[in-house]
C-alpha cells in the first residue's frame, strides 16, 4: 500500500521536476540551441572571418529601432540591414556576443535588446514570472492533494446499505444487463492488491 501511494505521486513529481529543471536550465544557459551548425559556408560580406550562425543568433536578439516589435532579423527596412552588417563587422573584429549587444545598447539604449539582461532591475522581468509560475504550480498541487480523500469506498458501503435504493439499482443493473449484480459487478470493493 505504502509503495503504491508513494509511486502514485511519482509521475506528478517527475513532471513538475522536469518542468522546473528545464526552466531553470534554459534561463541559466540562455540562447542554447538558437545558433546553427557552424560547419556551413558563409556567404556574408567579405570582411574578416566570423561565425555566420553566431551573427544570426545576435540578429534575433536585437530589436529594430524603427519598427514596431520586430527584430533586425525580421524587419524589412534598411536600418535593420545596416545593423546586421554592423553585427558582422564587429564579430569579425573579434567582439563577443555580449560585447556586440553592449555596443548596440550603448547607442540605442536598453530598448534595442529583444530581452533585457538578467542583471540589475531587469532581473524582475525573469524572476517574477518564474517565481509566480512555480508558486502557482506548487499551490495547485497542494490544493489537488488536499482534495484527495479515500471517500469512494466509504460512500459505496454506505449506499449499499440503503434498502430504498434497491429497486433503482436493479433498474440500472437490468439496463446494464447484469443478471446478477453480485457476481458481475462485485458486491464489495475487492481489497486493493499490492503494487505489481
Amino acid at each position: 500500500m505504502l509503495n503504491a501511494r508513494r509511486s502514485s505521486i511519482f509521475p506528478v513529481a517527475l513532471a513538475t521536476a522536469f518542468a522546473a529543471v528545464t526552466l531553470l536550465a534554459l534561463v541559466a544557459f540562455p540562447s542554447t540551441g538558437f545558433a546553427q551548425d557552424g560547419s556551413l559556408p558563409s556567404s556574408g560580406p567579405p570582411t574578416g572571418s566570423y561565425n555566420e550562425d553566431e551573427a544570426q543568433g545576435i540578429d534575433r536578439m536585437l530589436m529594430c529601432p524603427v519598427c514596431p516589435a520586430e527584430s533586425i532579423d525580421q524587419a524589412q527596412v534598411e536600418l535593420a540591414r545596416q545593423m546586421q552588417q554592423k553585427v558582422r563587422e564587429l564579430l569579425a573584429e573579434g567582439y563577443t556576443r555580449q560585447e556586440v549587444l553592449d555596443y548596440f545598447e550603448e547607442r540605442y539604449g536598453p530598448k534595442v535588446l529583444a530581452a533585457p539582461p538578467k542583471t540589475g532591475a531587469h532581473i524582475w522581468a525573469w524572476v517574477l514570472p518564474i517565481g509566480s509560475v512555480l508558486l502557482g504550480t506548487g499551490a495547485g498541487l497542494v490544493i489537488l492533494r488536499s482534495m484527495k480523500r479515500p471517500s469512494a469506498a466509504r460512500q459505496t458501503v454506505q449506499e449499499q446499505g440503503d434498502e430504498d435504493l434497491q429497486p433503482y439499482l436493479e433498474e440500472v443493473d437490468r439496463g446494464l444487463a447484469f443478471d446478477d449484480p453480485a457476481t458481475a459487478a462485485g458486491s464489495s470493493p475487492p481489497p486493493e492488491e499490492p503494487n505489481g
Binding site: 524603427v66 534598411e78 536600418l79 545596416q82 554592423k86 547607442r107
Partner: peptide, 13 residues
Amino acid sequence: GDGRIAIDYGVTG
C-alpha cells in the same frame, strides 16, 4: 551609405 554613422549615434528616425 552603410549606416555606420547613424548606428554609431543611435539614430532612430
